[in-house]
Design a protein around this nucleic acid. Structure first.
Lengths: 290, 290
DNA sequence: AATCTGCCATAAGGAAAGCTACTGCCATGA
DNA sequence: TCATGGCAGTAGCTTTCCTTATGGCAGATT
């Protein structure tokens, strides 16, 4: 009763009305067919067909059972076609370019989930600066890239957004500001500053420039965010970092939002000059479904 | 891939996210479960689950496949419940009473079909006169009976109707009548008559009496219809028989309808004093579905 | 009346599937 | 570093299941 071939026999007999012909339809011996039928009938405890003189016809109980058997086999066939249709995305490679911050924060869980859904697709992640992402995308050297604030006409899958936060030493005057009050970018730029870049050209200095300001007193410039926190703790200066880079342990630090908020949206865009592969499409689908 | 137990494993793994627990849910070893999964994945040529560190989760291809597997197993479960619900009508006995004419003409194909649909139900057919049918039904000695022109309030399943036909020797004066002209019952009753009863109290004599007539010259009275045809061929007299008893070979006979037509409706009724058994209900259902 | 034919059931044997017990591997967490 | 949880692989045995061969039954054929 647990063998689908036997159920194929059942519907074949129902279709042909003849065990012998049903047997050759599913590629079996007449004997095997007879045994298969008898086995199913025995385990069900019910007679599905009555063996007439010239034909084998379903009984009243057999009729609904046969219909259910059809749906069983239909589901199996659906599985087959589903699998055949999906085999294209089984293997493949995606070259991805991203600047370090997103690569270290947003992407790992996403790529982990993607690798779970598509174990055969390999994702090669390139860690580059945000300027180079555009270059690689334009040259077709990568399939997808992470960009900031994508223009509407690009097919972009949003990854998330972040806000830049002021990081202050515990004793700093601005550290008294509440979350609602916040600090302005201008106030921050006037302080002794620990500039952290995260390897990204979009950083405190460029943000200040965008706002028509300038960092007045950059005491030190580091690449790693974590280094910046250490330096702020040692009272070298204040800093401005993306919210998601904040450490779990904020001992000796005061984090206050910058008001008006400075937010950036990250999104994944595909290279425009060539049609996206099935693998890339799968990645986009996963992102859009969240 | 043809083993439903393996598909049970698939959905169990999908439900528990854990091969080990899935295995014990379907009563198997962890090893067997792993092998079952691997076998299905191999024959499909597709990875359905990705084995993570702590859990085994479906891939993008696995998700729809699992859903189809659920419908497969659902259909199997439906088969099980269908069979369980229908086991009541597997065996049983029906006592049936009928007068000979219907028993010899209408019932054989019906009982043959019924026996095909319900091989386990035994139908014991009693051949009695039409008067006795009512007696047996009333006494509850039979489950169902064939009656003539059932009253509307009885739960009756119509079997069919027949018309009485005049059977004349080839050279008889009335044999010139066309089918449209017919012969009247009065004309027929005036002829030398071969009275055939078929063992039924409803026969030419009773029909004549119902019409206020009387058979003038009954030359011979026989029980078998076929005997009557022979006697008519030998010009002993005319006869009146139900249409369905007419022989295939009408050599030397002329068959003309009686006008106005004398028709009787046959129907199957159940004994009213006790609720019908599942077997009887099955018989009624079959008749009503035709 | 005897034989033929189409169709099904049953017996016996063997091949293959499938399960179990056991071991090994890997990653995580103490 | 070891302990733990979870999965894969191997060997062997049991069971299932298929095939070949044979017998039986009911109409059809002659």
């Amino acid at each position: 009763m647990m063998n689908l071939m036997h159920w194929r026999m059942v519907v074949a007999v129902a279709d042909t009305g003849n065990i012998t012909r049903a047997a050759e339809r599913v590629g079996m011996t007449q004997s095997g067919a007879s045994q298969a039928l008898a086995l199913i009938e025995e385990t069900l405890g019910v007679q599905l067909f009555s063996r007439e003189n010239r034909q084998t016809l379903p009984t009243a109980i057999g009729l609904p059972v046969i219909e259910q058997a059809r749906t069983m086999l239909g589901a199996l066939e659906a599985i087959r076609s589903t699998v055949e249709a999906a085999k294209g995305v089984q293997r493949g490679t995606i070259r991805l370019a991203s600047f370090p911050m997103v690569l270290a924060t947003f992407l790992p869980p996403l790529l982990r989930q993607f690798n779970r859904l598509y174990p055969g697709i390999e994702v090669a992640a390139l860690e580059v600066s945000d300027d180079e992402v555009e270059t690689l995308l334009g040259a077709g050297l990568v399939d997808v890239g992470v960009v900031l604030n994508p223009s509407a006409e690009r097919k972009a899958s949003p990854l998330g957004r972040d806000a830049w936060m002021a990081v202050l030493p515990g004793g700093h005057p601005l550290a008294r500001r509440s979350h609602e009050e916040g600090v302005s970018l201008a106030e921050l730029a006037a302080q002794p500053f620990v500039l952290a870049t995260g390897g990204c050209s979009t950083n405190a200095r460029s943000l200040a420039a965008d706002a028509g300001l300038q960092l007045q007193d950059v005491r030190v410039e580091v690449r790693e965010w974590s280094s910046a926190f250490t330096l702020v703790r040692e009272n070298i200066g204040v800093s401005l970092v993306p919210e998601m880079t904040l450490p779990g342990n904020r001992q000796g630090l005061r984090v206050v939002p910058v008001l008006p908020r400075i937010e950036r949206e990250f999104a994944l865009v595909v290279a425009a000059n060539k049609p996206p592969s099935a693998a890339v499409q799968a990645l986009r689908d996963m992102l859009d479904e969240r």
